[in-house]
């Protein structure tokens, strides 16, 4: 793992604070998230303070600091979804999964991410599990939607 990391960082060794983003994106694409280890490693190899790298990374919603769960749930909080009360969906998901947005359940099954627009405003409020859109989500059906998705999922069947 750290070999891949070093290779990516060494390819971008001349980055400074203003050109840090592509490097962070590349690492996230490779690892799925930005681990503490990867941020420390960027700091060691480029000489940038980790507090600044972490500061840049936390500024953008696109970066995760926990690995994705087996079921990655994204909830839209763009304008159309916001006026259609997507906040309630986020709260309900946080309640059911017992995690906060940006976190992953301890068993590694679910992760929750809030995004700004998924381009499906016509069917707001929208959520998305592992790339599959769930249009016009309703708060009281959230649990059924997740359970339905999980039981139909081949990943889940393979686990059984």
């Amino acid at each position: 793992m750290s070999d891949i990391l070093d290779e990516i960082i060494k390819r971008n060794i001349n980055v400074h604070r203003d050109s840090l983003l592509p490097l962070l994106q590349e690492i996230q694409n490779e690892l799925g998230y930005l681990s503490d280890e990867s941020i420390n490693r960027i700091g060691q190899l480029t000489g940038m303070p980790t507090s600044k790298i972490y500061g840049v990374a936390t500024f953008y919603d696109q970066f995760r600091f926990n690995p994705k769960g087996r079921f990655h749930i994204r909830v839209c909080h763009g304008t159309a979804c916001h006026v259609n009360e997507s906040m309630n969906i986020i709260r309900e998901l946080e309640r059911i999964l017992k995690i906060k947005q940006g976190q992953t359940t301890r068993d590694g099954m679910y992760s929750l991410e809030v995004v700004n627009c998924m381009g499906a405003c016509a069917v707001a409020p929208v959520m998305n599990i592992n790339g599959k859109y769930m249009p016009a989500a309703e708060v009281n059906k959230i649990k059924d939607i997740i359970e339905g998705f999980v039981s139909n999922s081949s990943v889940y069947e393979n686990c059984q």
Partner: peptide
Amino acid sequence: LGFIGRGNTTIIGPSF
């Protein structure tokens, strides 16, 4: 110390 986060949830703190 560095800034962490953005907007009205910004805080100041050490790395991570």
